[in-house]
Design a binder for these strands. Structure first.
Lengths: 207, 207, 207, 207
DNA sequence: CATGAATGAGAGTTCATTCAT
DNA sequence: GATGAATGAACTCTCATTCAT
C-alpha cells in the first residue's frame, strides 16, 4: 500500500522555511500540513518523519526566527565600539534586513507566536526569547540616555513604539517597492534618533 | 423539556463584539461559530439568523472597526482649527483610545484582515477602507510639512512607522499596566513630533 | 457545505448496541466510527453529537453491559429465598441469557475492556464494576460452603473457573446450535454443582 | 555517523514472541510494526526482511502457540498408559503451564485469532488447528465415559466449559499471585473431575 | 427566532508497507 | 540485512453550514 521513493534529502531548514511561508499566507490555523508538505515536495504524512506535529513546526519556525535575529542584534549591542545612536542604526538595519531576507519566518515570529500562547509548555520559552530580544533594544536606549547622548524618554513606551514601527515593515514591505530595505531602515532610524536627540522644549510645546 | 429562550433580542453589535473577541483570542481560522455563539448565549445554528457566514462576520467586524476609527480620525483631520502637530496628537490619542476601548475589534482589524485577502470580493473594500484611514494620517504629515511646521520626511515610510508604533499598542497594552492610554498616546505623539521638528542636521550626523 | 436532515431520532441505546456489534466483529481498535455510524444510519461526524469520542462509546458499552448483568445477578444473589445451589443455577442462567440476548454488548465486556486498561481515568471504574460482579459469584459459593451445602473449595480459583466457563459461551454459542441457552446454562451449572458437592475422596484420588 | 548493527542475527522466534507481547498488550489492531520491531531492536522496515506482513506475524504467532500446546497435549492424550482422569489432569497442567510460560503467545491464540476470521485464506487453517486441539480434549472425556470412568455428560458443552475455565487463566493469572500454576491446574482439574465422577443423583436433585 | 441533529468536507495524525542506500 | 525516508490510505475528530421542528 505504499509506493515511490523521492528526490534528495529534505533539510529541516527547508521545511521550516516552507512552513513559515504557508503560515504567513494562511495563518497558523489556516495552514495545512499538506500545503506545507507540498512546498517541499512531500506528502503530509512524510512531514511527520521530520517534525512530530504541526505545533512543533511552528515552534521551530519561531525559534529559528528569534534566534537568528537575536544573535545578530546581540552582537551589535555588545560590540561597544560605538555610540548608542550608531548602535541603534545598526540594529534597525539588522531588524529590517532580517524581515526582508527571512520575510516569512520573521512574519511568523511577529504574527503567529500568539498561537502558542495557550500552550503552557512552549509559551514560556517563546515569551522569554521574545522578551530577551526586546531587552536588547531597551539596553541601547538606556545606555544612550545614561551617556547623555539621548534625552530621557519613557524607555518602555519608546522601545515598544520602535518595535512596532520596525515590525510593521513586515506588513507593508514589497520587494518591488520604491525604497530598499537599507533606505527604509535609515528613515526609521532617523526618525527615532531625531526623537531621542531633540531638545524637550520643542516637543512638549503644544499649541 | 426545553425552556423558553432566556435572552431578549440579540443585537448585531453584540455579536460583532463577541466575534471580535474570539477572533482575537484564537485567530479567524482558530475561532469557531459555536464559540462565538456561546458568547452571546446562542448556538451555532442560531448565528445564521444574524449573519450568513463566518466570513461575513469577519467582514462586519473589520468594517465596524475601520469605520469607527476612520470617522473619528477624519473628524479630527478635517477640523482645520489647529496646527498639524496638534492634529497628530489628537489622532494618536484617538487611535490608541480606539484600541483600548474596542480592543477586540481593533485587534481584529490589525491582525485578521489578512484572512480576507484571498477573497477577491471583499478584499477590495477592506483594502480601500484601510488605505483611506492611512491616507488621513498622511494628509496630516503632508500638511505640516507644507506649512513648514514639520521638517520634510519620507512621508510614506514615516506614516507606516507611525502606524506600526500605534498599532503595536494593541499587542502589548495591558489595562493594569503602568501607563494609561492617554499617557501612552502622549509619549508616542511626543516621539513622532520630536522627530518631525528636529532640525535635520542633528539627525543626519552619524558618528 | 452541508445538506440533508434524516430519519427519526437516534437513541443512545441504539448507538451503544451498534458500537458493541462492531466492536465484537472487529475489536475496539479495528472498529471505525464510520462503520458504527453507518449501523445507525448516520455519518461518522454525526456520531459526535451523541458521544464525544470513540473511547466514550466503549465506556458506555461496557458500563451498559456490566450494569445490566450485575443488576440481575445481584437480585438473584440477594433474594435469599433459596439454597446456594439454586442461586448458582439462577445466576448461571442469567449470565448466559445475558450473553445470548445481548451478545454483542456482553462480548464487548469480556473482550474489549482491555482497551480501557491503559486509560487511568476510566480504568478504575471499569475494574471496580467488573470485580463487583465477580464478588457476587464468590458470595454465593462462600455462602454454600458456610452452610455445609458445598464442600470447601478454593473459592478464588473456583469462581474464576466458573467465570471462564460462562464467559466462554460468548465465544462459541451459535443461535442455530444444538442446545438452547437454558440447556447450556443447565449443563454448566450441573457441572459446577457436581464439583461442589462431590465428596473429596473421590476427587483427590489420582491413579 | 552510523554505527555497526549491535545485535547478532534476530531469530524468528524472538520476533514472534515480541509480536505476541505487543499483541497482548495492545491487541492486533492496536499494535504497530514499529513497536514490535523495537522490542527486538529493529526498525519497522527491517521487520519485513523476516515477515512479509503484519498479518503473517499474527499467523505465525497463532500457529506457534497452537502447535506448541497441541503437540504436548497430543502426546499426553496418545500416551495411553493411564486413566482418562489422569490424562485430564495432565492436559490441564500442560494447558496452564503453556499459558504461564508462553503467556503472550497463549493470550494471542485466545484473543487475537478473531482478527484472522475475516481473512478466508488463513481462517481455515487457524480454525482447523484450534478445533484439532479441542478434539483432543473431547477425546479424553469420551474415552473416560466409554470406560465408565466418568459419568455421561454433554461432551460438547463440557469441553467448552473446561476450555473456558482453562483459557480464562490467561486473563487473571499473575506471577506474583497466591497460587502457582501447578496449584491452579490441580484445582481446576479437581473441579472438573469431581463433576465427571459425581453420581448423577447428587447433582440433578435441584431444589 | 432558536435549536439540535445531521452533514460532508477536510484537518492532523498514524501506520503498514516499500525501497534506495 | 538494516535503515530511514517516503507514501497513501485510513482514521478520529472538528466545524461551517443546513434545516425540520
Amino acid at each position: 500500500m505504499a509506493r515511490k521513493p523521492a528526490a534528495q534529502t529534505v533539510h529541516p531548514a527547508a521545511i521550516i522555511e516552507a512552513a513559515a511561508t504557508v503560515f504567513r499566507r494562511k495563518g497558523y490555523h489556516g495552514a495545512t500540513m499538506a500545503e506545507i508538505a507540498a512546498a517541499v515536495n512531500l506528502t503530509a504524512g512524510s512531514l511527520y518523519h521530520h517534525f512530530p506535529s504541526k505545533q512543533d513546526l511552528l515552534v521551530a519556525v519561531l525559534a529559528t526566527g528569534l534566534e537568528r535575529i537575536t544573535r545578530e542584534v546581540r552582537a551589535a549591542v555588545e560590540a561597544e565600539d560605538t555610540s548608542a545612536a550608531e548602535t541603534l542604526r545598526r540594529i534597525a538595519a539588522i531588524h529590517i534586513r532580517s524581515q526582508i531576507d527571512n520575510a516569512n519566518i520573521a512574519a511568523a515570529v511577529i504574527f503567529e507566536g500568539r498561537a502558542l500562547l495557550d500552550v503552557p509548555d512552549v509559551r514560556e520559552q517563546f515569551v522569554a526569547q521574545r522578551d530577551a530580544l526586546e531587552a536588547l533594544y531597551r539596553q541601547v536606549i538606556e545606555r544612550g540616555i545614561a551617556a547623555g547622548e539621548f534625552r530621557p524618554v519613557d524607555v518602555g513606551v519608546f522601545v515598544k513604539a520602535l518595535f512596532g514601527a520596525l515590525n510593521w515593515v513586515s506588513v507593508w514591505y514589497r520587494p518591488d517597492g520604491r525604497l530598499s530595505g537599507e533606505e527604509i531602515a535609515r528613515e526609521i532610524a532617523d526618525t527615532f534618533l531625531a526623537a531621542l536627540r531633540c531638545p524637550l522644549e520643542q516637543t512638549s510645546l503644544g499649541e
